[in-house]
């Protein structure tokens, strides 16, 4: 969900950039030297995960997995996802430059919220319970991201309102898929590496 340059009004772009800078600063503060490699490798993993196409009916969707990023990274999801968006814009022409801030905010803020709310729930109980909470977290993050994208469009002008609504409803299947995949990913992680979620966010 990359908004392009020129679509949003100036206050939205500037507000988004300021908020994203704040989030990135928070994230960098939470990263000490020992956690930089983990955050960096995870950031690369989420970049690669966004290349995975999952079939849905006759079409397919690509994964965003920002909920999972928030669960594993906490506030560090902000700089990690920002780096991914920057690389996508510069080397693949995806997204835009002045909208980097608002795009980061729309993807990373739901990630951080999902991490804050769900990471503790995922660590407790049986792996299946953890997986269900993981699924809820994954769905929440995508729903919030879509909602924020729609909201930033709607804030920029009433003319975007119909498109914004449609974007939100068109993404409901994506939310379901992200929820299922995040759930299974958490299930596997809980079984294979149980200590992963116990100490909370890795970085």
């Amino acid at each position: 969900m990359h908004i392009v340059d020129g679509a949003l009004s100036n206050p939205v772009v500037i507000g988004g950039a300021v908020a994203a800078a704040g989030g990135i600063a928070m994230g960098l503060r939470s990263l000490d030297l020992d956690r930089i490699p983990t955050a960096g490798v995870l950031s690369a993993s989420f970049f690669v995960a966004s290349l995975i196409h999952v079939p849905i009916g006759p079409s397919s969707v690509h994964l965003i997995l920002n909920g999972m990023a928030g669960l594993l990274l906490g506030w560090a999801a902000f700089p990690a996802l920002f780096v991914g968006l920057l690389l996508q814009a510069v080397f693949f022409g995806f997204g835009g430059l002045t909208v980097l801030g608002i795009n980061t905010l729309n993807i990373a803020l739901p990630a951080v919220l999902a991490g804050l709310v769900f990471s503790r729930l995922i660590a407790h109980g049986s792996p299946l319970q953890g997986a269900i909470w993981g699924g809820v977290g994954g769905a929440f993050a995508i729903a919030a991201t879509t909602g924020m994208v729609a909201f930033s469009l709607a804030l920029s002008g009433d003319a975007f309102l119909p498109a914004a609504k449609l974007v939100f409803f068109a993404h409901i299947p994506v939310m379901a898929i992200e929820a299922i995949l995040t759930g299974f990913a958490v299930l596997l992680a809980r079984k294979v590496k149980p200590e992963l979620f116990v100490k909370g966010a890795v970085a």
Binding site: V41, S45, T182, L188, K193
Partner: peptide, 29 residues
């Protein structure tokens, strides 16, 4: 395809990639 098996397999795939990524990062550190 569009079925539960596919989504479960992709979910495990993502989970495995993340677990391996974290273990790799420990070795890097």
């Amino acid at each position: 395809a569009t079925n539960w098996h596919t989504y479960r397999s992709f979910g495990y795939l993502v989970g495995m990639m993340l677990v391996r990524a974290i273990e790799r990062s420990e070795r890097i550190l």
